[in-house]
Design a binder for these strands. Structure first.
Lengths: 235, 235
DNA sequence: ACCTGAACACCGTTCAAGT
DNA sequence: ACCTGAACACCGTTCAAGT
């Protein structure tokens, strides 16, 4: 337990002080804390305590807290079953996009780590691969397909962020909502639509259907391909 | 300076200990710190120090740190000139959406406050008003228009979040990027597109054109209206 | 090589007391 | 009514020293 196989070198490490904690232990503990209490409960000190070491011992295995969180993400995607996809590329694309939203809404804490910006989990790459591949099959150039993927990802990500914000505010009974209560009668002149919508603002949030929206977005993004597919098939 | 006009009551406050700090002072200081050093530099203790009071004095004027940040946002939109909009509703919608992205990319710290989820700044409401109104003019029902606005907002918000993440990582010379360096030759079989794109991954980010993407998204979202406009004009 | 201990420079917020 | 002082329960990270 004090040594660790080194892929490539083929030799066990024998020099220096033996390890007391493994990087994997640290990541496992962080993952459990997140699952049970949320990302905001993760701190270097807390993880260290639960792993049975001082805070500083962690810095021997991870560069900083951001890296620990990024590692925590690794392998997450593998825990979700990969869905069966339809044959038509446009439908494959859409199904994959909706699937991204579905799995992430079950693990909303991931959003904070994802916003650090790096792709870290190889098991998750089949989704951009599928979306980009399908977009190309629909007539987009590789570059257009990549940009389309980004746009789709932004819709999914944004929807999840504000979905979570709503859930958080709903959970806090002390909250005093700013909008739409601060609209006055004078505002109705300059802001007729907003005033009209104000009454069932909360309710309308519940009616937002991500699959329906993604369908419209995807169709918009693929139109470029349909138009030019026969004229310029390369990027 | 020790009293404050009370709108509605019409009487100056004369009871109790005179005020030493005004809520507006607190917000102003917070805004300056954000402008000069970023949101992460704002703390109750720091603001209190610069306003010349103890941390706890702030809690007499704002409920907590979140409320302070929300107040900081108020009036932000008024500092940006409102653009001239074209006559055609589809173009008005698109121009407004791009404008949202443009002004927010100049004040990226706002993103963190916006993700708290509340609309707080009345001066910013002309943008959703314009987008929703134009969408209705293009044939969407009010409900469809509201949902379309949300989707557009998610694209704008997502693009800004990851744009900022890229800028942050680019500023940190110590960073070791995970993707695409961790792709092996075996991965090329399962992930041909991702492997293909890996070479100019960074470069392709720079080529992402938000206006072009929003145009496709908007057209996708408006199609529903064009199809059904003559059949079912109400929600 | 790996880990500890002490320290630095911070946080948000509660509570009781003062003016 | 408004503000202070002290305290509670935390943070991430650096640095020098120990095994």
């Amino acid at each position: 337990m004090t040594d660790k196989g080194q892929a490539g070198s083929g030799r066990k490490r024998t020099v220096g002080r033996p390890r007391r904690i493994e990087a994997q232990q640290i990541v496992d503990v962080a993952r459990r804390i997140i699952r049970e209490e949320g990302v905001e409960a993760v701190s270097m000190r807390r993880v260290a305590k639960e792993v049975g070491a001082t805070p500083m011992a962690l810095y021997h295995h991870v560069r900083d807290k951001d890296e620990l969180l990024l590692l925590t993400l690794q392998g997450m995607a593998a825990t979700f079953p990969r869905p069966a996809l339809p044959a038509d590329p446009r439908d494959r694309l859409l199904t994959t996009a909706v699937h991204m939203h579905t799995i992430l809404s079950e693990v909303p804490w991931v959003l904070d780590v994802l916003s650090l910006g790096d792709l870290t989990d190889k098991e998750a790459l089949w989704m951009p691969e599928e979306i980009i591949g399908s977009a190309i099959a629909c007539g987009l150039t590789p570059t257009q397909a990549l940009h389309a993927y980004r746009t789709i990802w932004y819709v999914v990500y944004g929807a999840l962020v504000f979905q979570r914000a709503d859930a958080r505010r709903a959970a806090d009974p002390e909250r005093r909502p700013f909008f739409p209560t601060f609209l006055t009668e004078e505002d109705a002149v300059a802001l007729p639509r907003m005033t009209e919508m104000a009454a069932n603002w909360q309710e309308s949030k519940g009616r937002y259907d991500i699959a329906e929206q993604l369908e419209a977005v995807v169709d918009g993004l693929l139109r470029k391909g349909r138009r030019h597919a026969s004229q310029s098939p390369n990027s």
